[in-house]
Structure formats: C-alpha cells, structure tokens
Design a protein around this nucleic acid. Structure first.
Length: 106
DNA sequence: TGGATGACCTCCG
DNA sequence: ACGGAGGCCATCC
C-alpha cells in the first residue's frame, strides 16, 4: 500500500535526536487520522534497520506496552543513544525533543 | 465481501 | 485527574 510507504518515509525522515508522535507522523504522512494505521505500519515494520520505530511515541511521549520491538528498556536505550532525554516519569521529553517538521522544511 | 482488530486520539462523565 | 466509549483508516482472517 502506498499508505505504508508514506508512513515509512515520514518515520525515516525523523532526524536523530528527535521523536515524533503517531498523530504527528500520520499528519505528515498526509492523513491526520492515520494514527492507528501508523501504529499498524510500524507494527509490521519491514525495515527496522531503516525505520526507527522507537522514535515514534504516543501523544504522552511513551510507547505502547504491547510490543516495544523488544522491550521498553530497549527503546529507552535507543532513544538515549540518539541523545533524547527522558523525564522522571519514564517518558520521552517531548517538550525538548519532539520533532518539528517545520525545521525540516526550512 | 464482511466482521474483527490495532504500537492511536479525543470527548464525555 | 481518572475511567470509559466512540471515531477513524487500513489490514487480517
């Protein structure tokens, strides 16, 4: 599906050191209501090496406990490796590292 | 083809 | 602030 292609393209475009939310990715993909589809697309994640799904978090900055591609700890490590700070709550500091698409357009 | 599900988001009580 | 239900789109069986 072209839908997945777009979603993957957006996720792949997420700069290192920043994170994006499902809704945001969906919006950038072209459809604000693809939030669930984005999650599904990442679930099937055909290229985990090129598609850093760990950079995609929910609206609160935390990932789903259902299937964190190996574990929430792994994700935390990967994000920290990218230079993404974490909050005491155990969530990603969206206020500090949330991806700003406008910066890419600039 | 139809029904059910999902790594979500938002509103209402 | 917390819990529950609905909506939305695409994919899977």
């Amino acid at each position: 599906m072209n839908s997945y292609e777009r979603i993957y393209a957006v996720v792949r475009s997420i700069p290192r050191g920043t994170v994006a939310t499902y809704g945001q990715v969906a919006r950038l993909a072209g459809n604000p209501r693809w939030a669930r589809v984005v999650g599904y697309a990442l679930h099937v994640n055909p290229d985990p090496d090129g598609i850093p799904c760990y950079r995609v978090v929910d609206r609160n900055g935390c990932t789903s406990s259902a299937f964190a591609f190996g574990g929430s700890d792994i994700q935390k490590a990967l994000l920290e490796a990218d230079g993404i700070p974490f909050l005491p709550d155990g969530r990603v500091d969206l206020a500090a590292c949330q991806w700003n698409p406008n910066q890419e357009i600039l």
